[in-house]
Nucleic acid binder design. Structure first.
Lengths: 196, 196
DNA sequence: TCTATGGTATGGCGAACGTAATCCAAATCG
DNA sequence: CGATTTGGATTACGTTCGCCATACCATAGA
């Protein structure tokens, strides 16, 4: 077994990606400096460029990683079919998720900032989100028509936007009510979809 | 009496607020420096602090202004009742709006960043968005039950999230399809609401 | 002309990204 | 098994750019 070899560097790289993902979600991409990101990983800023070409390189990698993890969680943890979707929706639009930026959905935390990123980053985002989307779509329409993907994207837009709005409001009661409304909206769309 | 006339300074301030609103929406809050913001207004950075206490002060003011203008546009331009809502929804989830950051909705452009702002800024956002929301709510349920406000917030969340998602995707055809799906979703919610 | 006012020009200070020069521990080889 | 090599990490630095402040100037009204 290699002791110092490839595993060491790969593990360090992984740690940077994971802690950076959390930091980006909490403080934003522009709001997170390289030296802070490295301190989060227990390193100093100079080591950064042995792992990534640039901050943008890390941003792209971290976003892809966040979406991958989220997709795995969806696939692994949620029940199949409509029951799984309802489970996902209720967990997503919960006060716990609203109040936990770091462990939460990267879409809700970063979506408008991602829209301003480089094409490379947005491409990685697009690829990553489609994997997540397919995990959701398979539960919305098991027969999987081509429109299922678009419907799942529509659902994700609703979820992310509602959560962002709940996070931005200072009135917590109103934010709570909005989350409930969001759950009702999401479920209503699913039911309307099945009726057609 | 005042030398330059009150109008002059007030007009300069207004110009800064308006150009800053556009810049924030295009480049983000963290992505916009004070000297850039002032250059946009045709001034140099030093003059900034004759008009605002700090960048945060401008951020708060600009967000409030953006929401005020948006609320006025909604009230002024959209027809009353359900027809007005449909008009708003179709305009909001249009490719034109998606491709025009600077003139677009401040919620879609800045929502997740606003969630990370100071309490003061978030309070100003909350106050401002509620005015906008009431303009929408009055068209959703003319009898105006207390839940109309929450329903309108739910709709705004759907609209903003869907538009953000459409902006982040690199696949334009998919983004177009998502916008259409968003329109259908929004209208379905309105109809479901009326049936109850 | 005198003075208040709005704006410019300039600068301090810190943080940002990125690049070395150096260090130290593990891996390899004679 | 000791010397050498390798490579990940540290420290330090350069440059740029961020926010914020102030000394000065130009203008317009009294």
């Amino acid at each position: 077994m290699v002791r110092y070899g490839k595993e060491h560097k790969a593990e360090t790289r992984r740690r940077i990606i994971e802690t950076a993902g959390r930091r980006f979600k909490r403080d934003g991409i522009d709001g997170s400096g390289v030296s802070t990101l490295m301190k989060d990983a227990g390193l100093t800023n100079g080591a950064f460029y042995a792992h990534f070409e640039s901050k943008d390189d890390l941003v792209t990698t971290a976003i892809a990683d966040q979406l991958k993890v989220q997709a795995e969680n969806v696939v692994a943890q949620a029940a199949p079919g409509r029951a799984g979707i309802e489970q996902i929706v209720r967990g997503y639009l919960s006060p716990q998720h609203r109040d936990n930026l770091g462990d939460g959905c990267p879409n809700a935390a970063l979506l408008d900032e991602i829209g301003r990123c480089t094409d490379t980053t947005r491409q990685a985002y697009t690829d990553g989100v489609l994997v997540l989307i397919d995990g959701i779509a398979s539960r919305m329409a098991p027969e999987a028509p081509s429109s299922a993907r678009v419907k799942a994207l529509g659902l994700l837009g609703l979820l992310a936007g509602t959560l962002q709005l709940a996070r931005a409001l200072t009135d917590r009661q109103l934010a709570d009510a909005l989350l409930e409304q969001g759950v009702n909206n999401a479920l209503a769309l699913l039911d309307a979809d099945q009726r057609v």
